[in-house]
Amino acid sequence: MTEVSFTGLDHAALARRTRRWGWLQYAGYRQAAEKPFFWTAFVTALGNPVLYLVAMGLGLGSIVDADVEGVRYLWFVAPGLLVATVVSTGAQFGTWPIFAGFKWQRFYYSAHAAPIEPWQLPLGEGVAISVRLLVQAALFWLVAWAFGAWPSASSLWIVPIAMLAAMAMFAPLMAYAATLEEEGLQFTFVQRLVVMPMFLFAGTLFPLASMPIYLQWIGWLSPMWHGTQLARVASYGLAVPGWLLAVHIVFLVACVVGGLWVAAHTFTRRLVR
């Protein structure tokens, strides 16, 4: 056979569907395109929590005699480690892979040459990444459960909380990455001067309140801290006033929605010239 068959595909119907569901079609593409990396991602997602929990929970925990915030150190540290790990993954996804989609592999241009609209791309990225983050958080939760890190079944809430916090990191970074034309040191700066301080001041290994008050604001700006606090509420019932609980949730949701909204604009500016 040397001919291509033309079956009379309904292009108008494809366009109609894409106008509505293009973001989901793109997410489907993204998931399928990640297939070759599945096992690497899976092993990393299982290996990370084992390493962290052994090092921090058992290693560091063994020299922390006293309870922290009224609970065993392992109970205290596990929600923070889970959130920190998943948020770090979100930060990674928001930098080089986005840049690559414009610069190296150019899959955003390919998608836009198809019927998909530019604003649908960051939304589709978000959906595809959310699924991966959710799976990663669930695997971490399972491993930590084997370590006896969860005092209650409500700790399962940590899985969606971690995903939300990771998306709060991912979405604004994606919006920024879409503006970069050349590879420079920007991502290194982002990693060292934004992500790293957010981790150090996120109250992962010790309560943020034990820091001097003039340094605590760094944590307040960190999706990781807000996520960690929510995760501790879910796991061992950390006492947090209602208004603060609302602040944590609103902060994270605002980062996700704001990040996606700005990304829709930066993607459009980049792709439509």
Partner: peptide, 25 residues
Amino acid sequence: PQQDALDEELRARDNLIVYGRYFGL
């Protein structure tokens, strides 16, 4: 396009299939 922009990590056949996803096929 001028630059192929194929998914280098995917197999040839999979490249066609994942591209079809852009169209919702």
